[in-house]
């Protein structure tokens, strides 16, 4: 089983639309994992039917029992996250600020503070409308630990792939360079970077590639809307050359992408789409690259 991870640095470059298209092209060879747990959108295109759903617990939250509290202030003194508030001498936990370190509970002389496991979201095993297994999740509002939920979604997807003999786990990663992206990348066999020829597209690509390079991963890149700014596209290609990134494809600026999405479909389901042919070539190329790696 090989893990292919799609990321972008910058949001809104077409990452999810492209990943869902590759999932459709991959058919029965793939297990889909939506690791953009912060703003998961792939279910809109693949319309999975959930077979199993479970809560995900990660980290802790301090809970203060006013019946036991002597208002001594030890908790307030040690908290580095401004998560203990004091109003008229009454100490309270500010849930959204608490990072669950547990320091307050340790210094409370009367055990008035307990740490409870925190429900940070829900994850699902599902069947897409193409009858592929898909693992996806939704992070609770304001939750921390999205990296752990990402790791969990990926692990479940890998187990399913092993069990059902699927060749690839196709992962839709999240934007940025922080903990969910780091979790998405760990264990990947190949990374697909989706970018656009804009000043911010290139800027974010460079940053996220630094991360990819830290993990020593092989990567290929798709330039979406490549004809929007041809000189910027050339600049991106220079960057590929310099960094040994495989240039997988250029996709034209085409509102057909948005039309397909508005109909909750992937672009490769549109019969006469030129983009479909390009993405078929991308998928074949990626499979070759993944095979050649070992």
């Amino acid at each position: 089983m090989k893990e292919i991870v799609v990321i972008s640095g910058k949001g809104g470059t077409g990452k999810t639309s492209i990943t869902a298209s590759l999932a459709v092209l991959g058919g029965k060879e793939v297990v889909v994992a939506d690791c953009d747990v912060d703003a998961a959108d792939m279910h809109i295109l693949l319309q999975p039917e959930n077979l199993k759903s479970e809560d995900f617990y990660s980290g802790e939250l301090a809970v203060l029992d006013q019946n036991l509290c002597t208002q001594c202030g030890n908790c307030f003194d040690v908290c580095r996250f401004d998560a203990i508030s004091v109003n008229n001498g009454i100490h309270q936990v500010v849930d959204l600020s608490c990072e669950g370190c547990g320091y307050c509970a340790r210094v409370c002389p009367v055990d008035a503070i307990k740490n409870i496991p925190l429900n940070v979201g829900k994850w699902h095993i599902a069947n897409t409308r193409f009858k592929q297994p898909m693992v996806h999740a939704k992070l609770g509002i304001g939750a921390d630990n999205s990296g752990k939920l990402v790791a969990h979604v990926k692990n479940i997807a890998k187990e399913i792939a092993d069990q059902y003999n699927r060749k690839y786990v196709l992962v839709d990663g999240s934007p940025g360079v922080g903990c969910p992206v780091v979790s998405s990348l760990s264990g990947a066999h190949f990374v697909i970077l989706v970018t656009e020829p804009t000043v911010s597209g290139l800027h974010d690509l460079k940053r996220v590639y630094e991360l990819v390079a830290k993990f020593n991963l092989r990567a290929g890149c798709i330039i979406n809307k490549s004809d929007l700014n041809t000189s910027k596209s050339k600049e991106i290609m220079q960057f590929f050359k310099h960094k040994n990134i495989i240039h997988l494809a250029d996709l034209p600026y085409d509102e057909a992408f948005t039309h397909a999405m508005t109909n909750c479909k992937t672009i490769v389901e549109e019969d006469d789409s030129a983009i479909k042919t390009i993405l078929e070539q991308v998928w074949e190329r990626v499979k070759t690259e993944v095979r050649n790696k070992n």
């Binding site: 912060d38 703003a39 992070l139 304001g142 921390d144 999205s146 999240s174 922080g178």
Partner: peptide
């Protein structure tokens, strides 16, 4: 602000 709905946005 950052994208998403998790701790950085809060």
């Amino acid at each position: 602000s950052p994208p998403g709905t998790s701790c950085p946005v809060i």
